[in-house]
């Protein structure tokens, strides 16, 4: 029916951490998700719902115990699949940068991926410089800094740079905006939009923050208690009544809450505005009309 390419397909995925031990936790009980090339998809859901477990499947860190995960041309249920090749095309930024960083020096950490690709010294250097500058880290100033003395926000950027340096086709980010200051958030959102627009990257991002999601995502999946419970565009998702959203640990975007309040007071505005710009237009229209 359409010519878009399906790049990620997750069907009825089930996963138990520490299976066969007394510490086993069933994190996924049946997740479905699909992502088309070039789109930005958000995974939403309450704490502990299985979002991180889900995205770790997408670059083969975890293997499906039941169900199907297909990413690009790789079927991850196949024990002989070349996960190494997959991981070079699908970059995963971990939820906690301190879990992802391991080299002593920032420059070495960012260079780890390109070195695995067997690139020449110059090429590795160029990629590291490019990746660090893309995330707003000055190459000369940061490459010789000790990784573990960086601030949380700086570590987060180094972690992202380390993945960008691989130049992945699909970029998966687990809570990339957590712990950044407002300026850092704006810059990262702008960077992600640019990557998507200019390089045609496919983005999968896990987030708690619906305000960030509406700025970035074309579509959303809501995971609750290890299952996909809702899917759709942000507009479809947030047109559910706030009570339904609250059931899955979500709230409408802040601006939408404001619009609900205005509408409740009899001001003739549409309730379902997702962004501030949209709300401003809507208010202007209402004021002129009134």
């Amino acid at each position: 029916m359409d010519t878009r390419e399906l790049v990620i397909e997750v069907r009825d995925l089930v996963y138990t951490h520490l299976r066969d031990t007394p510490f086993a936790v069933q994190a996924l009980k049946g997740v479905d998700m699909e992502v088309w090339r070039g789109e930005a998809v958000a995974v939403l859901g309450p704490t502990g719902s299985g979002k991180s477990t889900l995205v770790q499947h997408l670059n083969g860190l975890l293997r499906p115990q039941h169900g199907r995960v297909r990413v690009l041309d790789y079927d991850l249920s196949d024990p002989n699949v070349d996960v190494r090749a997959l991981r070079r095309r699908v970059g995963l930024v971990f939820q906690f940068p301190e879990a992802q960083l391991f080299e002593r020096y920032v420059g070495d950490d960012v260079a780890f991926g390109p070195r695995q690709l067997g690139l020449s010294r110059e090429e590795v250097r160029a990629r590291v410089r490019e990746a660090m500058e893309a995330v707003g880290l000055d190459f000369e100033g940061f490459k010789d800094r000790l990784t573990f003395t960086l601030s949380g926000g700086e570590q987060r950027r180094v972690a992202l740079a380390g993945v960008l340096a691989l130049r992945p086709e699909i970029l998966i980010l687990d809570e990339p905006l957590a712990g950044l200051d407002p300026a850092g958030r704006r810059r990262l959102i702008a960077l992600l939009r640019r990557l998507k627009g200019e390089r045609g990257l496919t983005l999968v991002l896990v987030s708690h923050d619906v305000d960030d999601v509406v700025l970035l995502a074309d579509r959303c999946f809501v995971v609750a208690d290890g299952r996909t419970v809702m899917a759709g565009t942000p507009r479809e998702l947030f047109s559910h009544p706030p009570a339904t959203l609250a059931e899955f640990g979500l709230r409408p975007p802040s601006i939408m809450t404001t619009m609900h309040a205005l509408a409740d007071r009899g001001i003739p505005v549409r309730r379902h505005c997702l962004t501030v710009d949209e709300a401003a237009d809507e208010l202007a229209r209402a004021l002129e009309g009134g």
């Binding site: 024990p79 190494r84 991981r87 070079r88 879990a99 992802q100």
Partner: peptide, 16 residues
Amino acid sequence: RLIKAQVSRGADMGGA
């Protein structure tokens, strides 16, 4: 953690 961090960026862990 270290193995996950390294293989996620394309390191080789010697196969299955």
